[in-house]
Write a protein that binds this DNA or RNA. Structure first.
Lengths: 230, 230
DNA sequence: AGAAGTTTGTGCACGCGTTCACAAGGCGTA
DNA sequence: TACGCCTTGTGAACGCGTGCACAAACTTCT
């Protein structure tokens, strides 16, 4: 039993809350006003026991024999995740990935406002991306102060990432989302999450190789897939 | 003790092997020919006991009193991850994210060859991206067959992702990397890994909120950061 | 050769997360 | 009201992953 001294939600549960949230929005759009743990589990790709246990960490928001009120649950999860307030984000590095992130609609949709796009490349500075002019990295401290930025996104090459992280921390940013393929060193109290595109591919490669070298599995999969050309 | 019936490497270990690999390459570039579990742990951001236990699943490749031979370890990890062979990859969806992925050097560098870039938008088809002409999604089956593609990357909007996944599976792809923010349903035998940009931000939001509502922590962090303006 | 210093490989214990299984509780119907 | 049906909430067991701590093994120095 996790020692929740009144508010200790397990990390594994926190990581699933956004998934539940997305499933709930989808269910709400389908016109449902109430949802069972089983239906939500199906929409989120997990089993129902996990859903019930996860939601129980937030409180007893369900009704036995009925299920959960969709809108109420959306609100409770949003509140728990801190999505009832807006967060200002800076994106550092306006290469291909920076462009993609700046144009990704999923951010604004969930209350994340892009306060600025920054780069060191003077050729990029001034260019319009996603409705904003790219500004120079040296303006970071100003941007963080005036827009109350608490989250920084690093979309630079690996060799520049640590320097950018240091600047972000010095400017007062306490959460960093790092897309650069490298380890970041930050003081305690600053959260870093890492998204690494090539690591995901390498993990797939591992499993793919095992399929190739396990002829029985490979054959079974091939046969089933050819038998049912969905 | 994990039941490794001769070759059962734990998932948690597999997920760390690419990190060790990157750290090892960096160590090799620094001119080191041998490395201790402690040094490798430092480079990978974990503790040394974990490094030793992880590497012990691959075999006894170290020398007591000395450490691990860097080049040999690089080879063994590469082999275990299936990186000693080239993998063909198709990228479906050539929006901002598709562009970023196509131009990301980390793929080719690790033996992942982009066999084709596909899209349904006829305005995109024919455009040159990362040295390749974008082709229409209908050519998927041909591409998979002629280039022996086993990995598909989905970089489309969410509403198109399930259809693309179905097509990939039907064409014979058995591993999928999904960037679309939705749940994919695939037959067993097909591996799916998901990368979701906005979920990561929401997890950061959760922790950021807890910092705000825990004044003691917040104050301590702020004081420490202002005292040491790195 | 022997002793001292290093570093690996691993048995063991602990803790977190998952899953099962069921009691508790609410709804609908007669 | 009483009975049957449905769904939540959770205690308890299990399994995986982590980290400690130490024996085994190799190197270096005297």
């Amino acid at each position: 039993m996790p020692d929740l001294g009144k508010r200790g939600i397990p990390d594994a549960t926190v990581a699933r809350l956004p998934i539940y949230l997305r499933a709930l929005v989808s269910i709400a759009e389908a016109g449902e006003t109430t949802v069972s743990s089983d239906a939500l589990a199906h929409g989120a790709g997990v089993n129902s026991a996990k859903v019930r246990k996860d939601l129980s960490y937030l409180g007893s928001y369900g009704t036995r024999g009925v299920g959960y009120d969709v809108q109420y649950l959306v609100y409770q999860i949003s509140r728990e995740l801190g999505l009832t307030q807006d967060w200002s984000v800076v994106i550092v590095g306006v290469g291909n990935l920076g462009h993609a992130l700046a144009n990704y609609g999923g951010f604004a949709q969930r209350g994340f406002t892009i306060a600025a796009l920054l780069d060191v490349d003077t050729r990029q500075v001034g260019e319009m991306v996603a409705g904003q002019a790219v500004r120079h990295l040296d303006e970071l401290t100003d941007v963080v102060a005036t827009s109350s930025v608490s989250i920084g996104v690093i979309a630079t090459p690996a060799h520049a990432a640590q320097d950018v992280a240091d600047r972000l921390v010095a400017a007062g940013v306490t959460s960093i989302l790092n897309f650069a393929p490298c380890l970041l060193s930050v003081p305690s109290g600053v959260d870093v999450r890492k998204v690494d595109l090539s690591i995901e591919l390498q993990i797939l490669s591992f499993h793919e190789q095992r399929k190739s070298t396990a002829p029985r599995v490979k054959a079974a999969v091939a046969q089933r897939l050819s038998a049912v050309p969905s």
